[in-house]
């Protein structure tokens, strides 16, 4: 094979360069981050006392700071979760019996209910913040490989990776069809024509997805696929910093647990 002389800069742009300083947490082995996150989540949901819950939230905030999460978008994501829970949390003080704290329109709110609401609020936010800080900072592909490295069933990992790969292709197909509908004057209304057209749209998407999946398998067979996906990834060794991070995190989890049961 001879090499083409010219290398066009428009096509071969520089590989996406990493920011000059990578935050400490993002250099930790993805598998370690995933395991630590799961351990933290399990410990945190088992907590019920205020000091240990605050401790868990503190740890999560520390992790978020170390991962240099963008404050604005992180808060927005957490607000989305809290918004989802707000009705449940708001009703808890009124549904859990106990010593009355205050009353609204004749309904008594209990101390126990208030505590329970605060407990759930702290727990969920601590866990979500930790998820955003640890696995949330990985590329999706990195997460897939981390799962494979942790012996998550192969089928599940492949399903995840194929989804990551093709969801955008499907999204593009959807947008193309939608645009062409709009170009022919289609607007969503509440009538039979709208329902039928939207039905056609999704039916067409489904057919195209099936056809595409057939072409993908054909292309894979052309390159020798016989039912098993080989892996290029060599088993990355866990380095000293990864080990240190794991030990510190584990110690923190144990500390939370001890604080809870002290």
């Amino acid at each position: 094979m001879t090499r083409p002389e010219q290398t066009s800069s428009a096509i071969v742009d520089a590989a996406a360069t990493q920011p000059p300083t990578t935050p400490l947490l993002r250099n930790i082995d993805p598998r370690v981050r995933l395991v630590v996150c799961i351990a933290f989540a399990f410990v945190t949901v088992s907590l019920i006392h205020m000091p240990s819950l605050l401790g868990a939230l503190g740890l999560a905030v520390a992790a978020a700071v170390m991962a240099r999460l963008e404050p604005a978008s992180t808060l927005k994501r957490m607000a989305a979760l809290d918004g989802f829970m707000i009705f449940v949390l708001g009703l808890l003080p009124f549904t859990i019996p106990g010593a009355p704290a205050f009353s609204v329109a004749g309904f008594e709110a209990s101390h126990e209910g208030l505590w329970r609401a605060a407990e759930i609020l702290l727990k969920s936010n601590a866990v979500v913040l930790m998820i955003l800080a640890l696995p949330g900072t990985m590329e999706q592909v990195e997460l897939g490989h981390a799962m494979a490295g942790l012996r998550v069933p192969e089928k599940f990992v492949h399903l995840f990776l194929f989804t990551v790969r093709y969801i955008e292709v499907l999204g593009r197909e959807y947008r193309r069809l939608r645009t062409s509908m709009r170009a022919r004057g289609f607007t969503m209304r509440c009538n039979l024509h709208t329902w039928r057209s939207v039905g056609y749209l999704f039916g067409m998407l489904m057919i195209r997805s099936i056809e595409r999946s057939e072409r993908i398998v054909a292309a894979m067979r052309c390159r020798g696929f016989q039912g098993r996906l080989p892996s290029l990834a060599d088993t990355q060794t866990v380095r000293g910093t990864d080990r240190a991070f794991a030990v510190v995190s584990l110690a923190a989890c144990i500390a939370l647990f001890t604080l809870e049961h002290a």
Binding site: Q140, V169, R212, R215, I216, A219, M220, F225, L229, P230
Partner: peptide
């Protein structure tokens, strides 16, 4: 070589995709 490259490139990274054929042919990683 397929008409639509999206049909052909199914691996997450370029290296994995290019390696897919050779690995299937029994080459080591």
């Amino acid at each position: 070589l397929f008409q639509d490259s999206d049909d052909q490139l199914f691996c997450p990274t370029v290296a994995e995709d290019v390696a897919f054929g050779p690995l299937n042919l029994g080459k080591s990683a």
